[in-house]
Simulated assay, not measured.
Amino acid sequence: MAVNKKDLAPLSFPKVGPEKIVREYLYSKATKSLTKKFPEWDMPRMEPSTELVAKKRELYDVEQRLVDKRREANKKRKEMNAQWRDLEDRETILRENFIKFNKFVKENQEKRERAERKLSDEKALIQKRSDDITELKKNYDHMLSIKLQMERNIKNHRMYEEYLQNVVKACSTFRTVDDILDRYETLAEARKVLAERQEEDLSALEDARNEMIRVTEEKTLHIMGLNNVMAELQSRYEAAKSKALQWELMVTKIKDTCVDKLRELYEVRRSCWNVYLQMCKRKEIVPELAQDDIENQLLFIKRTLLELKRITKISRRRATREGTRPNMRSTRTRRFF
Rank of each mutant, 00 (worst) to 15 (best):
F174E: 00
D179H: 03
I180E: 00
I180Y: 01
E185V: 13
E185K: 14
E185L: 15
T186M: 13
L187R: 08
A188E: 11
A190Q: 14
A190L: 15
R191N: 12
K192V: 03
V193I: 15
A195T: 11
E200K: 14
E200Q: 14
L205A: 11
E206Y: 04
A208R: 15
N210I: 06
E211G: 15
R214H: 07
V215R: 13
E218S: 07
K219V: 09
M224F: 05
G225I: 10
L233H: 02
S235L: 03
S235P: 02
R236S: 03
Y237E: 04
A239N: 06
K241Y: 07
A244M: 13
E248L: 09
V251S: 07
T252K: 13
K253P: 00
D256E: 12
D256R: 08
D256Q: 11
T257H: 07
T257Y: 03
V259Q: 08
D260N: 06
D260I: 07
D260F: 04
K261P: 01
L265A: 11
E267K: 15
V275L: 15
K281Y: 13
R282Q: 14
R282D: 12
E284M: 12
Q291W: 07
I294H: 01
I294K: 00
I294P: 00
E295K: 15
N296G: 03
